[in-house]
Design a protein around this nucleic acid. Structure first.
Length: 328
DNA sequence: CTCCAGGGATGAT
DNA sequence: ATCATCCATGGA
């Protein structure tokens, strides 16, 4: 709409975010950070790729975030919120240095450079991971989207982009509160493709809504006690509890063990050792990966998942045949 | 310890 | 088009 008689340099247009009209964006420093990797590493499931960035919510706020080298362009007024959410204050170089030195960790560390553990809102994280049980990432995204659309609040992000006709103004939805979900029914929740998880999510939402569990107060608990309290909630077992501890309570030692992690650990640290139960594996991870075990786990998880999905069918079948631990 | 329900996307055929 | 595979929790 502004005319500069063709004197507006091309570079300036790019610097303004290639937006038409320009979206009001704030620039914040983000060294040692990879936005796309972080959002695609199985921590959060609601960010939507939009143009060169992503649209999503952080708690009650909606935001657009785009990476430009060592900086982020974010919705105006959301700088601090975004910096805190993406944990830009974590001393990533120190954290990576604290990982054990071995061929697997070295490869994962190289592959995941810039990946950070997000600081998630507690209820949103707990609820999402209750829904994640027995689901793959693509499916968890669907569930998250449906829950938000049915029970959350709409927010608009003005993200009209030049040359990006399909993506004009973007609507996103906040994650519904425990109180809101507590008022719903199992049937309504099942309509969001939750299956048998509906019952667990509803029961846990009611615990929170009635004040029988206080997620904020639980911050004061030790790792052991926090895990125990979380595991008392319906639908929360060791794996989900560790995800919540890591992603919502910043317990950077918490080491969620799912099938991907278990597979990669067994292959690399316990090749053809048939007698290794969950308890022994747990003892190993706590000792071996140390104070930032959760970060190490996230790097291993992302590395394993990406390497597996990149291989074409042939390779995967061969891999699986080689690894197959079935003792028949 | 073992076995198994549960459900929808995804990939193989 | 069908068929197999992926997966965490909780209860038998």
């Amino acid at each position: 709409m502004l005319k500069f008689g063709g004197l507006w340099p091309r570079r300036l247009n790019i610097a303004l975010g290639e937006l038409d009209p320009p979206m009001k964006l704030t620039k914040i420093p983000a060294p040692d950070f990879d936005l796309e990797k972080t959002l695609d590493s199985g921590q959060v499931f609601h960010w939507v790729k939009t143009g060169h960035g992503f649209c999503g919510t952080i708690g009650d706020r909606a935001a657009y975030v785009e990476q430009r080298g060592n900086e982020l362009l974010v919705t105006r007024g959301c700088g601090e919120l975004v910096a805190n959410y993406f944990a830009l204050d974590h001393p990533l170089a120190n954290i990576c240095r604290s990982f054990p030195r071995d061929p697997l960790m070295d490869a994962a560390r190289r592959f995941c450079r810039g990946l950070r553990i997000i600081r998630q809102p507690k209820w949103e994280c707990l609820a999402t991971f209750i829904c994640s049980s027995m689901k793959q990432v693509a499916h968890i995204r669907q569930i998250s989207r449906k829950l938000r659309e049915h029970f959350g609040n709409a927010r608009n992000i003005d993200s009209r982009k030049g040359g990006f006709a399909g993506a004009n103004s973007h609507e996103v939805f906040t994650f519904p509160s425990a109180e809101r979900l507590a008022q719903s029914s199992e049937k309504e929740l099942r309509e969001c493709a939750l299956g048998y998880r509906a019952k667990n999510l509803l029961a846990t939402a009611r615990l929170i809504a009635k004040g029988e569990a206080d997620l904020a107060k639980m911050s004061a608990l030790s790792d052991i006690d926090l895990q125990e309290v979380l595991c008392q909630m319906p639908g929360v077992g060791a794996k989900v509890a560790n995800c919540v501890m890591l992603f919502a309570y910043q317990r950077l030692r918490a080491f969620p063990i799912d099938v991907w992690i278990e597979r990669v650990l067994r292959q690399n640290y316990f090749p053809r050792m048939r007698k290794l139960n969950a308890a022994r594996l747990r003892m190993f991870t706590e000792k071996y990966f140390g104070e930032h075990g959760g970060y190490a786990q996230q790097y291993l998880f992302h590395f394993a998942r990406m390497s597996a999905s990149k291989g074409k069918s042939r390779n995967r079948i061969r891999e699986r045949a080689n690894l197959s631990p079935h003792p028949a």
